[in-house]
Nucleic acid binder design. Sequence first.
RNA 1: GCCCCGGUGGUGCAGCGGUUAGCACGUCAGCCCUUCAAGCUGAAGAUCAGGGGUUCGAAUCCCCUCCGGGGUACCA
Length: 506
Amino acid sequence: MTTGSGTSPQSGAPMRVRFAPSPTGALHVGTVRTALYDWILARKTGGRFILRIEDTDQERFVPEAEQIIFESLRWIGLDWDEGPGVGGPHAPYVQTQRRELYQAAARRLIESGAAYECDCSPERLEEVRKKQEALKLAPGYDGKCRRRDPAELAESRRQGRPVVVRMKLPPAGDVSFVDLVRGKVTFSWATMSDFVILKSDGLPTYHLAVVVDDHDMKITHVLRGEEWIASTPRHVLIHEKLGYQMPVMVHLPLLLAPDRSKLSKRHGATSVNEFRDAGFLPEAMFNFLALMGWSPGDDREVMTRQEIVDAFSLDRIKDSPAIFDRTKLEWMNGVYIRQLTPRQLAERLIPFLEQSPGGLPPSVPRPLDIGYLEKSVPLVQDRLKTLRDAADLIDFLYAPEIRPEPAEVVQKGMTVATTASSLGRSLQVLREAEPFEHPVLDARHRALAEELGLKTGQLFGALRVAITGKKVAPPLFETMEVLGRKLCVERVERAIDALGRSEARA
RNA sequence: GCCCCGGUGGUGCAGCGGUUAGCACGUCAGCCCUUCAAGCUGAAGAUCAGGGGUUCGAAUCCCCUCCGGGGUACCA
């Protein structure tokens, strides 16, 4: 390390970190931010980045979600060293395939007296909660089954009544743990109650599963969103009772919407897939997300993946929430778009231009000619915030004909007649210019404007509308060069015709 | 309600005991100029949430208040 900025106390030893999403749908940008930090840390320390699927919630399980997770991670460039698809020494990496481990752990906890079985009905639980609410007490399980008769439990089971396993909380006192971002955090056991670790369907809750798996997979650092900080005491308890050592805890600041509430659907796009489809570049997304909750300590913002890995350190993660500013993301995406070569940009643009709604009109034949596109790209490269912006900016290059509005062709201080005659003179230039390249076209038209006593803006403006059909378009003569002599002549002729017809009507 | 974590220009971030409070996005203006961008210059914009302390000195440390967020499930 030559910069020194990236050397944090913990950057030396290889870290084993895991990203453990639930397959419940698309990957939220906040979740991906966590994955990003995991990946960076693993790469930085020569450690391992482990992917684990936490599918213990059968209710919320979405079958396609697993594929979406893989795709999203691959899209943004996070490759995993252990996990689904690649295997590893702690396989399987899908929690529903590991249930024996959790059940064994639950059994050990019951045997040691740290946990107990509970057959309280949902109705009773609801009743207890209501009573507590009425008395303004903290809601929570009252511990009735702590002293449940084993025979009664067995009877419940025989009758098919649901039985869960609950962790027994210490009667009083505080729990503390060290969080790398927030320092020492303390909770009182009184604010919690005996929580479920094994559900009646035999699957573990998050609390048990995470502890068992992180220990089994030898995870050294746990990175997760701040919403987990309040349940960390539960994890401390389970670790303790199982005789496991706690990994280093790192609770990342939440990602908020501009209105400072939790980033959700109503704020627009929230999943990486949506950003990908909206035309954001993965490298821009990587860079932007890395800065959501972390900064290098100097004023750098636009950084390559390698620069981020080099500069990253856990002690520079901030403790206040990060707000997702889409405008700034768009700016950064534009920066990355401008860094591409025309060829690279053309290649990335093709899927966006070829897609049916949002791309070029269906009348434009697919597949697109990459050569023509590559020539067109420099015309709009500086003007793109997202890849999806391109279609609207270059559609006129693909239109079979342009039907300009006569009123828009005529520039300020000109009439239909003077405009038509000026375009007629331009036509000569277009027919004769040799070679048909922008420096020549530019020089000839400047001379023409002077000869006609027009401002360049007047002549060029009229031509722009004739050639592109738009008042706002890329630089005129570069555009003409891409379009070629034949099309330019046709379009200017057509504009003159249109002017003639409008005059006749008037 | 209770518990935990936050609060620096409009926005995102840096600064964490002594700075004219720094950078970026956005906004506005100028330059460039054929429009729009991009680029370059410059400007406006902050009682560092408020109030008390501690200190020679506080955005930085402590306390209170207010505001925001998170948690409080057989969801993760």
